[in-house]
Design a protein around this nucleic acid. Structure first.
Lengths: 229, 229
DNA sequence: GGGTAGGTAGACCGATCGGTCTACCGGTAG
DNA sequence: CTACCGGTAGACCGATCGGTCTACCTACCC
């Protein structure tokens, strides 16, 4: 179990807080089981068995199921943030390029599309977890709140950088579209909800950039038909 | 001697009062407990105790926990549909009034706002239930799918009646906003997400109605029954 | 009266829940 | 060599899980 690049984790990931090999296996197994079958429905015996370890190791390394749930959410949050920011920085470097100022905001939807395609057949793991953790004092709830606040803040930063009129409003709207898209991805009511959300986001963006704050001339937006096959 | 556990009524049943008093109390208690604490976390013993009945009555009336879950979802679905349609019909009668053609579509967001204020402190009950029912064969899953498809179809009908350009697209977009709003209502990241969603819906609506399909002026109502694609 | 429906009360079942425990084993650092 | 660390193996705990069962009661209708 040496650290080998790009196996289960994304590029640029760093091993969080030096997990022992047993703890790593447990966290991986818990991550898959919690997301696929639900948190409450998965017992610690099954996690230990699936990880090829024992409950002893689980309790020695994590302390209990609640702490393991929080660790699972932290891990998922860390991967999602890394995925999103690296995607945006790579595909829409911005600042001086010929692309429109809203390119980086729209790129978040492309990142989401690929993320859901790879890791999200059952909707947002954080929304699902919130459904199972009604107790506000549960350690996992803090991770969930942080994740949602972080995304909204990230969208706000991008909105400000793009020179959007009313960046607060734009960030709220795009956060709304992100959540709606990832939730409808889990259900089967709209096909390609992320693409729909992106198109609607482009429309919202167009309006927000047509009246920039500091007199920056409105530039041509990226065409909505920009989507790659 | 056991009565038939077919009380989990089929779709098309409009009467909630085929229920015996004991079954009614159980369904009420289960509805509150399932939504507030999560489905898996709530046991049948607690439901029977909270309802002031016994497990015997629960199993005689509903057959088992899975059937009770489906009955709970059906009940919630029925209330939501009734709430939404009656709100729209009352506050936005449409067809011949002086209001705009998209008034009924926007009214769905007002209905949602009031619904969430009254019944939805923890987000969408169906999304939460879907998170806890990963098995596609679970009887509750069918109810969830029907609920989401119904809303999307209802929005589509309203979009067609309003004479929207691309009613499929508009229905998808509004469904997206509905889901995003109700999910973010459960979390605490955006204040008044329903209002944000309504504003964005109004914007989407404005565009969809500015280019009606057959050259009808945007202020005129297109007669319903338009089913061409 | 008899039959039946709906209900209450509560014992009981095997399985599983989260969590703790002792005992042993291999590697490694002082 | 010894001490310790991380792990394996598995017994064990009380509680609770979904579900079944017997027994008895009341009310209503033929």
């Amino acid at each position: 179990m040496e650290t080998r690049p790009d196996i289960g984790r994304e590029a640029g990931d760093t091993e969080p807080e030096g997990l022992t090999p047993g703890a790593r296996k447990i966290l991986d197994a818990a991550g898959a089981l919690f997301y696929e079958r639900g948190i409450t429905a998965v017992g610690v015996d099954l996690i230990a068995k699936e990880a090829g370890t024992t409950k002893k190791t689980l309790y020695d390394r994590f302390g209990g199921k609640d702490a393991l749930i929080a660790a699972y959410l932290r891990e998922r949050d860390r991967r999602w943030r890394s995925w999103l920011t690296s995607w945006v920085d790579t595909r829409a470097p911005g600042t001086g390029t010929g692309a429109g100022p809203g390119e980086r905001l729209l790129a978040t939807f492309d990142a989401l599309a690929e993320w859901t395609r790879q890791h999200n057949p059952r909707g947002c793991g954080f929304v699902n977890a919130a459904a199972e953790l009604p107790d506000p004092a549960h350690p996992g709830r803090r991770v969930i709140d942080e994740q949602k606040l972080w995304l909204r803040g990230y969208l706000y930063e991008l909105a400000v950088a793009a020179g959007a009129d009313e960046p607060d409003r734009l960030a709220d709207e795009l956060a709304l579209l992100h959540e709606g898209a990832v939730v409808l991805r889990g259900l089967a009511v709209v096909d390609d909800p992320v693409a729909r959300a992106r198109a609607l986001a482009a429309q919202s963006l167009e309006r927000a950039l047509s009246r920039p704050r500091y007199g920056v001339p409105p530039t041509a937006d990226t065409p909505p038909g920009d989507r790659s096959a």
